[in-house]
Design a protein around this nucleic acid. Structure first.
Lengths: 216, 216
DNA sequence: TTTCGAGTCCTACTCAGGTCGGAGGCGGGG
DNA sequence: CCCCGCCTCCGACCTGAGTAGGACTCGAAA
């Protein structure tokens, strides 16, 4: 029995690429395509694909919300999220939304095909690149019985952590986000507390060492 | 005409390994071995190898000084330096000493053999890993007609920059190096001035972004 | 509706980080 | 020999970073 795939991406070229790529595989069949989130949800309901290849950035409804809705309707659905960028803020959210996997679009074809098979087979999967970046966050975030009081960072905090990792001062971050510097300080304090760090310097070190943000 | 190699390393196992490795190649001949720096210098003078594989850490005379002496006696000598560690403080010094190349011992055999051929052929070479780390330093350090006042960091400053990039505070660095915190501050100030940075946070960012120190 | 988390903002305080200027020792090159 | 760069150290000073504790809004969940 072949793997039935639904491709959801707003760029037709990307869809065509995947159709070509997957079409060559005997055990894989592309049963439908969607060019936006809403369409993805409806077609997932209609075709019941084994797996949905889901882009994040899509009109109408983004891939994350689409993922949530599809899973709400059918918890057994398997969704493999595609990203162009190395690690958007959406990754964590995507995993929380219930996606089974995460791959980068620019990875070699074999990897992508392998990813489809893996997820279709029931396993979760993360791009090797993504894996090591997420792993640490997840060993704590994913398990409700968290070791200690190691809370997950909020979206805002993550955003600020990223700016810190760019070497920006609190004032610069405030300017960039149109909030006051004191607010930035508040967030920074929370970040440091949650990650058990002493100062922003260590935050930068951690950001790079965990691969949260890529060096080059 | 084959490539004549002198292997200089204080560990006999390492020498044996290289002999095995290089012995399999038809165009490469291991003409001599040395177990310390002095021996390396004398054997280089006696055998005139096409290339010297030089370990850095050796008794009597380290690989850097040995490199300098060999080159002093014979400027046409080609020396390929071997390192175990990713990037010791010696790398820059080694390049300044006149070494033609730099490879990591744990790189795959083919790379090592290729490196030998490359350097023997007259080209300079850096391990891909090392390359990107050194490249930036060198585009400024190597050319006397430096673009602006972008001075090179001293060994001490580099050492301290590395500790900063580990997230250490000035006090911790002082303790680790057995110097006063004020001295550390002085160095830090110089580092920031030379690299045109605002604070240690940016220094960390730069360290990782230029690949000066590896994340993982 | 009430509760709660997230985000925003504030004051006031402490302290590490960084600057400035000056100073001594030490080794190598002119 | 003297000069200069490097490393070391000091005290005084200023500022950004981080903490503590509280307050307001808003939207989502109970």
């Amino acid at each position: 029995m072949s793997i039935r795939v639904l491709i959801a991406d707003d760029q037709s070229m990307v869809r065509a690429g995947f159709r070509m790529l997957l079409g060559g595989e005997e055990d894989i069949e592309v049963v439908a395509e969607a060019s936006d989130g809403l369409e993805a949800v409806s077609k997932a309901a209609r075709f019941h694909p084994t797996i949905v290849l889901m882009d994040i950035r899509m009109p109408e409804l983004d891939g994350l919300e689409a993922t949530r809705r599809i899973l709400a309707a059918d918890p057994s659905a398997r969704i493999l999220i595609l990203t162009t960028f190395d690690l958007d803020e959406y990754v964590y959210e995507g995993l929380r939304a219930g996606a089974s996997g995460f791959v980068l679009k620019d990875e070699p074809p074999e990897q992508l095909i392998a990813a489809v098979r893996t997820v279709a087979g029931g396993d979760a999967l993360l791009s090797p690149t993504v894996t090591k970046r997420v792993i640490k966050q997840f060993t704590r975030a994913a398990r409700p019985e968290a070791p200690k009081g190691v809370d997950e960072l909020t979206a805002r905090e993550l955003e600020i952590l990223r700016l810190i990792a760019d070497g920006l001062s609190n004032g610069e971050i405030a300017g960039k986000l149109y909030i006051s510097e004191t607010t930035v300080k508040t967030h920074v304090t929370h970040i440091l507390q949650k990650l058990d760090l002493r100062d922003r310097v260590q935050a930068v070190v951690l950001a790079y060492q965990t691969g949260l943000f890529e060096p080059d």
